[in-house]
Simulated assay, not measured.
Amino acid sequence: MSNQVKTLVKIKHKDRNRKTVFFRGIIAFPAIIFVATFAQSSFSESESWAAGTAGVVALPTLLALVFRGKYPSYVLTFNHAVVELSTRLAAYVLILNDKYPSIEANSKVAVLFPDVEGGKKLNRVLPLVKWFLAIPHYIVGAIYLVISLVVTVIAWVQTSITGRYPEWAGEIVLGTIAYWNRVQGYMLLLVTDKYPTFRLK
């Protein structure tokens, strides 16, 4: 098994529903609102206290790892579900497929976490500095994100007209999603101590 977070998305290149592609932003709005609700902290008025940007439980995880050397299984299950949900939404909004993001897991989109063995495989001190060590990734990731948005606009026009999603666009967009999931897995989800690669794949 990989020691980094792995993202799998089945990209639909042919026979796309041109109407749903053209109105994707409007159609996806309810799903965006639903996912956004997970970003609201249930512990404090400050989102940074208990929830990260993706709505995952971050601070309690850090505290459990540092002081107890454990990764609570219920937190891991929740974080995994939220990341998969966010990835399904990203795949839909960025028009990788026409499958409306379900609130349950499906076979078209999967995010695989490394086996943390309840936290036994993880360093107890490293979580305190991972956010700092990942700074270069924020910069590179922002560049990838801008490129992916430009690529998505081009692919959106082409797919809306022809019903075919370009393969080259899928590689870039999926690579960017996978990249951010790897970075998040390292510095926020804390499911690996392996420093993320800078590659899209």
Results as ranks from 00 to 15, higher is better:
78 F>A: 09
116 V>L: 11
50 A>H: 00
129 V>T: 07
68 R>L: 01
79 N>M: 08
11 I>N: 11
12 K>P: 00
64 A>V: 00
199 R>K: 13
67 F>K: 08
145 L>C: 12
130 K>E: 01
192 T>A: 06
171 E>M: 11
181 N>F: 05
39 A>N: 01
189 L>M: 12
114 P>K: 09
99 K>T: 10
35 V>T: 14
90 A>E: 11
164 R>E: 14
169 A>F: 05
148 S>L: 00
19 K>W: 06
115 D>S: 15
193 D>H: 09
92 Y>T: 11
17 N>K: 05
18 R>G: 02
112 L>A: 06
55 G>Y: 04
90 A>N: 11
70 K>I: 04
37 T>D: 02
98 D>F: 09
82 V>I: 15
76 L>W: 03
114 P>F: 04
180 W>I: 07
2 S>L: 09
18 R>Q: 15
90 A>D: 10
145 L>P: 01
191 V>M: 00
45 E>F: 08
157 V>Q: 13
25 G>E: 03
6 K>S: 12
101 P>D: 02
47 E>F: 01
75 V>K: 05
39 A>V: 10
70 K>M: 05
16 R>H: 02
10 K>I: 14
72 P>K: 07
79 N>P: 11
181 N>M: 03
20 T>W: 00
164 R>C: 04
60 P>G: 14
179 Y>M: 01
37 T>E: 03
71 Y>P: 02
81 A>Q: 12
86 S>I: 09
3 N>F: 06
173 V>M: 13
103 I>P: 07
99 K>R: 13
184 Q>D: 09
200 L>A: 04
69 G>S: 03
5 V>K: 12
184 Q>C: 07
19 K>D: 04
5 V>I: 14
116 V>Q: 13
152 T>W: 01
105 A>K: 05
93 V>T: 08
198 F>L: 15
34 F>K: 12
69 G>E: 07
140 V>H: 00
70 K>D: 03
34 F>S: 14
155 A>P: 03
106 N>H: 06
53 T>L: 08
29 F>Y: 15
150 V>W: 00
53 T>Y: 03
45 E>P: 02
153 V>R: 04
132 F>P: 00
7 T>F: 13
45 E>T: 02
134 A>M: 07
199 R>I: 06
23 F>L: 15
43 F>H: 01
